[in-house]
Structures are given as C-alpha cells and as structure tokens.
Design a protein around this nucleic acid. Structure first.
Lengths: 332, 332
DNA sequence: TCACTATATGCAACCGGTTACACACAAACA
DNA sequence: TGTTTGTGTGTAACCGGTTGCATATAGTGA
C-alpha cells in the first residue's frame, strides 16, 4: 500500500512530473491539479523516499562524522555541536564510531562506509590520524574537515584547539596569580600531539618568565588515573609548589593519592586540563582548562556546509582558544 | 570519474548482471570474468552506492534511533549499546535527536524523517511519549521498539527499566541494613512516569515492613538541583533519618545545602537514583541506583533486528533490573 | 493578424543498482 | 539419441524519484 508519485499521478490523472512539481514547489501547476494532489498527500500522509531523491539529485544532504566514540563528555559535546549546526544548515549527520579497532582497519572501514553512503562531506576527529589516511580522505573528491589534527603540508581544512596557549593560560595563572615557582608537570603518552603541545606551553611559559626549565619536575604519565597515582611518590619528593597534570584524569589521581597519604599534612595544589564533566564535583573542585568542544562542533558543521556550497576555495585552518576555569584545587 | 557497475561492465565487456553477481558473490561467473572484474574493482577502489542498492532491495539495513539528546551519560551509554549491537547485526544506526522541541512538533518531525529515510525499524526512547504517537509509530508498518515507556493496551514491543523495584531495592538497603525508619522522599515532576514508579516503590516498601506511609516526609521536587535546595529547609524540619531523592541531581542539591548549612552539625544521609557519572566523585560519594543503559541499548538493538527477521510475532515486553550502588552517602 | 510570452503538462531518459526470465552450451544420464 | 542438469551470460523491467525538452493553449503588445 506504499504511495509513490507514480501512484499519486495515476490517482489524479496527471503525470509524475506534475506531482514532482507540486512536491518541490517548482514550475507551473494549475491550482486545480495542485489541490487535488495535495489532498491525496495529506490524506495518506505521503512522504517521499529520500534514497530516490538523492539518487536523482547528486546530493545526499548528509555529512559523515567520524569520531572514536559517542559517549564521554568530550565527544558527546562535539557531537551535539555538529548535529545542531548541520540541522540548522538542513543537513543530516551520519555518525561513524570506530571504538577500539586497530588504526589500519579503522581507516579502511570508515572511509569505505562513508563512500558507500555517498555522504556530501566528512568531519573527521581521529586522534590517531596519520598523514596517509588524511591524504586518502582528501582524495575522495568530497570536502573534508579535520578536527584536532593538522598537516601543514596538505591543502586541507582543519580546526584545532590551541593546546599550547591553553597550557600557557594555566601557567600564567599559576605563576602570576599564585606566584608558584616550582611547577611539576605530568605529560600524557608520548605519541599524543595534544600532550606535546601542552608540554611545549609549559616549557615556554617557564622560560618567558625567566624560571629555568627543570627536568626533574617533569613526569611521564599516560593520561590515566592509575598512571598518575604510580607517579605520586616521585612527584612529592620534588617538593613542588603545584602539580600541573596534562589532563583531568591524572589530576584526579594525584588528588586521591594526596588524600590517602596521611603523611602529607599540607594542601597540595593540583590543576588539570579538559574540564571533564565531573571536575567541578570533586573535592577540591578542579582548576582546569576548558576546551570549547561544542563550539568546535558547530564550527565544523558550518565550515563543511560552506565548503560544499563552494565558499571555501582555499584551505581553511582555524584554531580555537581555550578557557581557564578557576576553581579551588589550585589554591584559589 | 565515478565508477558504476555499468562502466565496469563496459570495461570488461560483460553485462551489468555479471558485475553484480561478482559483487554479491551470487550465481555463476566464469573465473576469467571474475578475476577481470575484481581486478578493476581493486584498482579503482570501487564502492557500490548504498542508495541504489537499498532502492532495489527493499531494505536499507538502517535502524532509526530516536532519543532526546546524545550528550549526557544516560543517553550516551544507551547510544553506545544500540550502535554496537546493531553493528554486530550488520545494521546502521540513524540517530535522530529532538532536544527541546515541543512534543507535538517532535513527533511530526522524527516520524517523518524516519519515513523519508525508509529505515527498516525504529527504537524510540521518548520520555514524554504519548499514546497517540506510539499508535502512529506502530502504524508505520515497520517494527518499532519503545524504551522506557509501555502502553499495555497496544500490541507493541517495549523494554523498560524497573523503577518500582529499583526504589524497593534502595528502601531495603536503608531499612534492613541501616535500620532507618523516617525516610524522606523527594519526587520528580508529577508527569514523569519514572518518578511515579519510584514513589510507588518507596510507598510499597514502607507498607511491607509495617512502617506507615507519612505524607509529611514526601516533598515534590522537579528533578533539578535548585529545586531540591529550595526544599531543603522543609525537609530538615521533618527530622528524617535519611533523604531518598528520586534522582541524583536532587540528591546533590540536598548534599550541597547540608554542607553550606552550618547549623546542621550532624551527618545527613542522602541517596539518589540514576548513578550519574559524577556521583562517585562528590563528597560523600553517592549511594544510588544504577540503570543498565548500555545493556538496554544492546537489548533494544537485538530485539529490533530479531523482529525484522520475523522472529517476534508476538509483542515483546521486557523489564530490566537495576543495581544498587552502595557508596558512603547513605551512612555506609 | 502575427510574434512573443506566460502558463500548464507530459514524454522519456537518467541516477545506480537488483533480479526474474530466457537462452546457450556442455556433460551426464537413461 | 533425447532429456536432464550444471554452468555461464545477457535482456529488460524495476526500485522512486528528477529534469531537459517538446508541446499546447491563452493572453498580450505591435
């Protein structure tokens, strides 16, 4: 009993073309026929088949969003931003997560699926993106916006968050406002571009103020809570004024260790990075750096639709700034 | 330069049919032609157009998931469950969020979009779902699984979480383990089915144990932190042993009020419901009820694909049990 | 009266696949 | 030798829309 324009045409005694014109509100249609057709559409609740439409027109009005996962505040916020932005621009979001797949298979899978779905464009946030994948994605012939990663040599669109300046922002607060001098730093895994940038910001700030960089104050973490806790004793020995963990998870690990450790009877200031959703609820509430993920998502959606509309001939490269979120864990 | 089966056919000197047979690994194809065709497919990286496929076959291999939002731990976990389950069953997930739209427009929008995308089935988690919408969705002629809502009179598939037994679980802990007698309860908004069920569990438990139900101990909340804080003074006056808030947000509100209120110099036990992601981080860590959202998502994905495969002739109605998460806020 | 324009409609090809059916040929069986 | 069976291939219709082009009629200005 499925209605198609052919059937509607038959019922009203006109051609498919005329029905199509009514649906798209294009061309000329006599008011008699128009009302006959709309009457049937309303009566049976006809909804056109988007597959057929997109097969005829060349576009699907769909953008592929490639992210590791949808859960977690980080990606959830990004997703909201992208989705709302695309909805405003009358596009759909096709979400593709690749979770724990190994890098190579991932690339194979997500690019292939996006192609078979014939998306009009893609937004890719792949923390482990390699240049070969970036090149391959660009070669698909559809607009792509990369998030969080940039390959300066390639002519592509990218939007990044400024990890360097985020770390500088935090350092300025610690040094100017609190007058801390011995600032311990916990890095993330060494293959994380984000972590490297944050570390660069840390180092740069120290040098700008004239405090030398002390290697003893830097520990190599892995972005996990447990990892940070294993580093706790070693960090305490350095007698640092404050611990700057390069993400919130590790900051939490340090705070918990300090809490358990009865031997430590002074308050140990700790700050993090990311503004995880729970960071305001821990004790003490965490001072951290907030990344504008929602805004990043909206901007990505905007950029991709503009590109599709042919407005971005040149490669777009944007960098978003972060915010310092001051709570109590820094000593404030 | 887009490759199609027609072009591949032309290049190899065979018909479209033969190419199609190679792609689908069906029917008979000579090994000569097969290798010629696969060579071209590999060389140019041909990927078939899913729109065309789904237009010919009658199915899209896509399930529509209707949820209020993708952010927040609650829906994010559900989404992960659904997506992973559908991936296992070789289906895609088409996510449709309706955010803050007004109920009526919502229904119009999401049902219409699902129809124009010709999804093979739908999973609907709409906390404000009305019976008319449920009826309308069922009338679409595709399988639908409703989550969190059930209309016993309609022959539909539904999977719910047992709010009644969740509340009973909590009450048993409070009464048996802690021996609390005066248990204050904060309801959610009166139009929330979830809240009503939790309240029913609260009442039922009291009566089972022989403690009468005392209306004075019940306050009407609205599931928000601020709302609970406005109720704080009134609740304190009742001199309750413990406060059972019907969600974590309100529990947090009460804990914060108790914290600020220096006049109160005893520990006020508070428990919540939902196991929000931050509930383990607050001070004291919150005792609460955990809803198995991930599992719910997986089950929903499983049920819808089974139904599509024709295995669920009768209406499927399932109820998932909740877990009690004991932390310190209850006095443990 | 003629040319031109605005209005109204339909034909048929096309988008990129699938599939029922017909046909051809070889080997195997009766 | 005639019939069946297993292979291999192609024709053409179909899924449900869009669109370039042709055609027809009525009204308008010269």
């Amino acid at each position: 009993m499925k209605l198609t324009i052919a059937k509607i045409a038959e019922m009203t005694g006109v051609s498919k073309t005329t029905v199509s014109r009514v649906l798209n509100n294009s061309g000329y249609v006599s008011s008699t026929n128009r009302s006959k057709i709309t009457a049937i559409i309303d009566k049976y609740g006809y909804v056109p088949d988007s597959r057929a439409i997109s097969l005829s027109k060349t576009r699907t009005e769909t953008i592929g969003l490639v992210i590791p996962e949808t859960s977690g505040p980080f990606y959830a916020e990004l997703l909201s931003g992208v989705e709302e932005s695309l909805r405003d621009h009358e596009h759909f979001t096709l979400i593709m997560t690749f979770g724990n797949d190994k890098p190579h298979r991932v690339r194979q899978r997500y690019l292939s699926i996006m192609r078979q779905k014939r998306v009009d464009g893609m937004i890719i946030f792949d923390p482990e993106l390699e240049i070969t994948t970036a090149r391959e994605a660009s070669a698909l012939g559809i607009p792509v916006v990369f998030l969080g990663k940039d390959f300066p040599d390639l002519p592509l669109h990218s939007i990044c968050v400024d990890n360097f300046r985020g770390a500088v922002l935090m350092m300025e607060h610690l040094m100017r406002h609190h007058n801390y001098r011995r600032i311990a730093f916990i890095t993330g895994p060494s293959d994380s571009q984000d972590s490297l940038e944050r570390f660069r910001g840390y180092k740069h700030s120290l040098e700008t103020v004239g405090i030398g960089f002390d290697d003893e104050l830097v520990s190599r973490g892995d972005f996990t809570r447990q990892g940070a806790q294993r580093l706790y004793n070693q960090i305490i020995k350095t007698d640092a004024d404050v611990v700057f963990a390069s993400n919130d998870e590790m900051a939490l690990g340090i705070i918990e260790s300090a809490h358990d450790e009865s031997s430590l009877n002074r308050f140990l200031p700790v700050v993090g990075y990311d503004d995880a959703i729970w960071s305001q609820f821990i004790e003490p509430p965490l001072t951290t750096i907030r990344q504008p993920m929602y805004q990043l998502g909206r901007l990505a959606g905007h950029t991709i639709t503009e590109t599709i509309a042919g407005k971005n001939a040149d490669s777009v490269r944007l960098t978003l700034n972060t915010h310092l979120v001051v709570r109590r864990s820094c000593g404030c």
